[in-house]
Design a protein around this nucleic acid. Structure first.
Lengths: 241, 241
DNA sequence: CGGCGCGATTAACAAATGTTAATCAAAACC
DNA sequence: GGTTTTGATTAACATTTGTTAATCGCGCCG
């Protein structure tokens, strides 16, 4: 089986590729797999022999500590390579866990290694992807330092709205959010109770609707302004690199 | 002028390079520059035409917001490339600012471009460096979510101790910290007053000394255990990549 | 229909952190 | 030596967030 069309979304969106390069990408062999909510897709520890492309659902990166605490450092959506970072590192520093049911495709590291030796431009493309991930990390750091619970929820929803739009998963400003208030608290680093306080505030101000796993932004622009969301950091515009 | 010997620290530490590769690195031409405390080395906005290697002092990455708030997302020490991330991105999302006086060396992007076209192994080395930066970002996210003010200070000092050791800037568990309590608060995301509360706690428990810009860890192992510091994430051990 | 279970909600209280402003202490300056 | 400056410290109070536990509401299942 060869790689799904999500790779086109994932990799071709932000650069200009030759037909040959696209063909190389399309011919990458993959191994599909499915997971249920809460499953560990990639385990913290030694770097895996495969890289994992998310094609359906969502996944989190969760750092696991000795005291069993789990901290989420990133949220992934279809089209994301969830562990490309491990490509050159000796250990992966976090679990990747299914957030709701999800489908993935594994690519052997050896294949990426070969591409990376033979096609400098395509390595740059993979590198670019990890750079965008890093940019997202920095935005999370800044967002968490600046915003309170209410605002962080708004910022996250703006971010999901923008990222999911790119892969065609937003309809009328509504998209699927396969998690409940407890899990949202886990993602944003808040207690369940406090998440509930903030969610109710959102309902009161008519900026978003959230029920049965589906979120709709009622006024994306006003929400973005309120929480200082600037989609620039998602690097969604194509360029020649 | 060619690149300082810090590049050897910076780039060769974590991989096995051929003599030819080392020679390529040594011959990279650089432009040196100096900055005073608070100077902007690289300004948020369009990606610069040069990449900046820090050779002396410290620098922060600071995200600047419309309301003038500044949030620090990373702290750099000698041997770090502070803006390699901008290499493939269209915009740099933060300022890089001198934290105390510091010296840097600029490398033209064009030179890196050329190396990246001609020598896949050296690109991987640069890529690796940005991956380690990203790992540090994730650790910061996790650290800030897990630890309180007192513990965050301890964690930062463990991290600096480990990173500065690599470049030979630690003597008897003591190293230079060119900042005061207010700036520490800025780096960790706390108010000055709260930093002071935490710093005093540290004095009381005899885990570190901090005065006149110099920090000494009195019991590095106990401190590391207390704050859950695990140097693995710094990827300090060499490997073949 | 009726009970069960799970997520949402509420309440009451505790802990961490922010804000403002005043004071202190030591270094820097003249 | 006296003054100024800067950073450290303290106090008092406000806000945000966490913790625990009880309750509610609704869908699901027997």
């Amino acid at each position: 089986m060869t790689i799904s069309r999500y790779l086109e979304y994932a990799l071709c969106r932000r650069d200009t590729l030759s037909e040959l390069e696209r063909a190389i990408l399309r011919d990458i062999p993959v191994h599909p797999a499915s997971y249920r909510d809460g499953d560990v897709i990639i385990r913290q520890g030694a770097a895996p022999e495969q890289s994992c492309l998310l094609v359906k659902g969502m996944a989190t990166r969760e750092h696991r500590f000795k005291d069993r605490a789990r901290i989420t450092s990133a949220l992934h959506i279809p089209g994301d390579f969830v562990d490309l970072h491990a490509f050159l590192l000796t250990e992966i520093d976090h679990d990747v866990m299914a957030l709701g049911d999800c489908n993935v495709e594994f690519v052997d590291r050896a294949v990426l290694e070969q591409i990376s030796r033979e096609n400098p431009h395509l390595i740059r493309l993979l590198w670019l992807h990890t750079l965008i991930d890093a940019k997202l990390h920095r935005v999370w750091i800044a967002t968490r330092a600046r915003l309170n619970a209410f605002e962080r929820i708004g910022h996250l929803m703006c971010e999901l709205h923008a990222r999911l739009s790119v892969v065609g998963l937003v309809e009328n400003d509504a998209f699927s959010c396969p998690f409940d208030q407890r899990k949202l608290g886990g993602i944003l680093g808040y207690s369940t109770v406090h998440m509930n306080r903030a969610v109710q505030k959102f309902r009161a101000c008519h900026l978003l609707e959230w029920s049965r796993g589906r979120v709709r932004l009622l006024d994306p622009d006003r929400l973005a302004a309120l929480v200082g969301f600037d989609p620039e950091y998602l690097e969604l515009t194509p360029a020649r690199r």
